[in-house]
């Protein structure tokens, strides 16, 4: 092959992945296996709540993610860490506000995302359980780490101050609402 290329030839190499035969999804009728398998994660958040201002600071996030097959460990870990912080932003800070069809917070001065000072220390454990369907058994990791963080944050807040917050972002105002509405446990 190398000899051939060096002699000035051109070569193309195609590889195609076929899902297992039974994995069929009918786009027209929305029938079949849209989600033939799942990645799994467990997420734990340690948080401190200021008893006067009800501000929440996440101090530590522990994530165990089972992603099928890890293809690039550094990037995979990066996806989990980055998604975890995005989930935390969603849980505590980020809210797209729309009014009369216009975004009220359409810039970084008004749409607040976590800085390094908002970021908790993170511990990420990756696990592999390759699955027959996708290439190399990789199930996917991008969206996974965002899903469990908000519930974990709300549980941490409840654990700390005894107020159940049922809306996110769990801003001090909403936590206070929770207390007013008599959810204090």
């Amino acid at each position: 092959m190398l000899d051939y290329l060096e002699a000035g030839g051109e070569a193309e190499h195609h590889v195609r992945h076929e899902p297992p035969k039974w994995q069929i999804f009918d786009e027209e009728h929305y029938h079949g296996f849209a989600y033939p398998t799942y990645s799994y994660a467990a997420q734990v958040v340690d948080a401190e709540v200021d008893p006067d201002t009800l501000e929440v600071q996440a101090t530590r996030a522990t994530v165990v993610a089972e992603v099928g097959r890890i293809i690039h460990e550094v990037q995979c870990r990066g996806q989990v860490e980055g998604g975890t912080l995005q989930g935390l932003g969603w849980a505590l800070l980020e809210e797209m506000k729309v009014e009369n069809g216009h975004y009220r917070n359409d810039r970084m001065a008004t749409y607040i995302v976590p800085t390094i000072l908002d970021a908790p220390e993170m511990e990420v454990e990756l696990m592999e359980a390759p699955w027959e369907g996708p290439p190399f058994g990789a199930k996917g990791v991008g969206e996974l780490p965002m899903d469990g963080i908000a519930p974990a944050v709300c549980a941490a807040v409840e654990n700390a101050v005894g107020i159940a917050v049922d809306r996110i972002p769990a801003t001090p105002e909403r936590i206070l609402d929770g207390a007013d509405e008599g959810w204090a446990s």
Partner: peptide, 13 residues
Amino acid sequence: LAGNICRCTGYEA
């Protein structure tokens, strides 16, 4: 690094 926002990495790395 308080003045440098990163949206991707979660800052840990």
